[in-house]
Amino acid sequence: MAIQPTRRFSRTDWTHLGFLALPTLLFAVFYIYPVISSIRLSLHSWDGFAPTMRYVGFQNYLSLAQDTRFLGAVRNNVIWVAFMLVVPSGLGLLLAAILDRGIRGERAFRIIFFLPFTIPAVAVAAIWRWMYEPDNGLLTTVLDLVGLGGLAQNWLGDPGVVNYALMGAVAWWTTGFAFLVFFAGLRNVPVECIEAARIEGATPWQVFWKVSFPLLWPSTIIVLGMSAIDAMRLFDVVWATTRGGPAYSSDVLATLTYDLAFGRLEMGRATAVAVYLMAIAAVIIMPYIIYMSRRVQDSEAE
C-alpha cells in the first residue's frame, strides 16, 4: 500500500513485499476501516440506538478540550506512562538479570515471577480488592503487624491514593511481561561474548552491564514500547477494579471512552475521546519508538 514500485526491484525486494502482503492486508481490513469509521462517528452526536445521527462537526473535540474530567484522564494516562516505563520494566530487568546468573531454585522463581501475568483481568481485580480492603485486607493487616499501621490507607477509596494502589496491582500483574522479554533477550546473548568477559576476570554484574545489557537493546525497545502503549490504552484492570472512581479520580482515557459510550450513551463524544487517545499516543509515543528503533539500525551499521 505505501510502497510504490517506482525504482528497479530486485528479487530481494519482491520477496520482502511478498512477506508484507498478508500482514498489510489484515491491517488494512481490521484497523484502517474501523478507525476511519470511528473518526466519522466522532463528528456526530448519537446515542448508539437512534436510527440517525446528527452531524456536529468538531463540537465533540472542542467541548472535550475544556472538560475537567477529560483533562484529568489525560493527566492520569501520562502518569501511567511514566510509571509503566519505570517500575514494571525496571523490576522485570532486575529479576531477569538476577535469574540469568543461574541461581539455586531458578526454575521455581521463573514460575513465580511469571504467574501473575497469566491471570485474567477480572480475577486480578477481585484479588486486589481483597488485598486493598482498607480495614481487613492483607496489605493493611501486614502493615499493622509490623507496626506500620499508620501507613495504611483507604487504598481504593481515597481519590488521592487510588491511582497508586492501582499501579501496585498493575506492577504485580505485568512485571512478568518485562521479565519474560528480558530473560529471553539475555538468553539470546551469544555465549562467546560472556565467556570472553569471564576469562578476563569480570564479575557477573560487570558481565551484565558491560556485555549483556548493550546487547539487550532490542528487548529494551520491546519492553519500553509496549509499556508506553499499554499505559495509554490501559482499561481492563481499572474498569474491573474501580470503574474510574471514586468520582473520576482513577479515570483513564479508555475507561472514559467506555463510560461515555455505554454508561451515558454519548457515542460521538466517546469516539472523539478515542481519537484523542490515538492522536496523543501518536504524538508522544510514536516518535519515541521510531527513535529507539533507529538506534538499533545505527548500532548495527557500525
Binding site: E133, D135, N154, W155, L156, G157, P246
Partner: peptide, 20 residues
Amino acid sequence: AENWSGKTWTQTADDVINGD
C-alpha cells in the same frame, strides 16, 4: 464507617456479619 469508599458492598456486608 471509616474507609467506606474503599469497600465493595459485599465487603461492607461482611463487616455487618462480622459485627464491626
